[in-house]
């Protein structure tokens, strides 16, 4: 990437405001903290959840949007921990602002440990999505996103929200679906910890708006993105039958 004499996007923001800013960029200290956090997290996930990852080799170079089914707070931690190299350094989890950025302390944790960017449910403005999209392309970022919008309380995958379409509209950024298994059982306080596995799916979906947007394209894209994780969520025999039919 060519060097540009350009200040940080969040330059001039007061410290607390910077933590909650969608323009936040990490420096050397943030990178080191993030790396240390990911290492610790990987160790924890491997030791206590016997985390297994398959298909990591299918991940494209940044930028891309990594989406997955969402049923636990472990989901974002797991996905951010399994990324490697440049993708890991450029990864931002898009996290619920009201949950993770409510106080200065939680904001600092979300910003420095998981490098999260806040998305404010039901009050996200189009300008904020445009900022996210601009950064995704220009800064070659990786977004970790859960298109269901919230954790599925019963563990079953809910329909994807159409916001994912707005995020990649007009770009060539691939959307990489991934299926997480075991997180729902692992997180609830009443249940015992158990195995968690993250399985990136090799398919990619190009941006929908390269051609002229049609009515309902956002929902179409959301449905397309949901196909792979839903297929993985089904029993293996069902997936196999579907593939043979195809």
């Amino acid at each position: 990437m060519e060097f540009r004499l350009r200040p940080a996007r969040d330059h001039g923001l007061p410290a607390e405001e910077r933590l909650r800013s969608l323009s936040r960029e990490r420096g050397l200290g943030g990178l080191l903290l993030g790396s240390a956090w990911r290492m610790a997290l990987r160790g924890y996930l491997a030791a206590f959840h016997r985390l297994e990852v398959t298909g990591r080799e299918h991940l494209p170079p940044p930028p891309f949007v990594l989406i997955a089914n969402h049923c636990s707070h472990l989901d974002a931690l797991t996905l951010s921990a399994v990324l490697r190299g440049e993708a890991a350094r450029r990864a931002h989890a898009l996290a619920a602002g009201d949950t993770f950025f409510g106080s200065a302390l939680s904001s600092a944790f979300a910003a420095y440990a998981i490098n999260a960017l806040p998305v404010w449910r039901k009050r996200t403005r189009s300008g904020e999505l445009a900022t996210l999209r601009e950064r995704l392309v220009e800064d070659r970022l990786v977004y970790i996103l859960f298109p269901e919008g919230t954790r599925a309380r019963d563990g079953a995958m809910a329909p994807f929200q159409p916001g994912i379409g707005v995020l990649v509209a007009g770009t060539q950024v691939p959307v990489v679906p991934c299926f997480l298994e075991g997180c729902h059982a692992a997180w609830p306080p009443q249940r015992r910890w158990r195995r968690t596995a993250a399985t990136p799916w090799p398919g990619r979906w190009p941006a929908p708006a390269r051609s002229r947007p049609r009515r309902g394209w956002r929902r179409s894209l959301a449905r397309a993105c949901a196909t792979a994780p839903r297929a993985w969520a089904a029993p293996p025999s069902a997936v196999w039958r579907r593939r043979r039919k195809a």
């Binding site: 990437m1 060097f3 540009r4 004499l5 350009r6 200040p7 940080a8 330059h11 960029e25 990490r26 420096g27 050397l28 200290g29 990178l31 350094r89």
Partner: peptide, 21 residues
């Protein structure tokens, strides 16, 4: 250095910034 890094964009080159540190 931190302020200089963030003002000039040198922080986007973590290897160089690390060597300066």
């Amino acid at each position: 250095l931190r302020e200089f890094d963030r003002a000039t964009g040198l922080f986007r080159e973590p290897l160089v910034a690390g060597l300066v540190v």
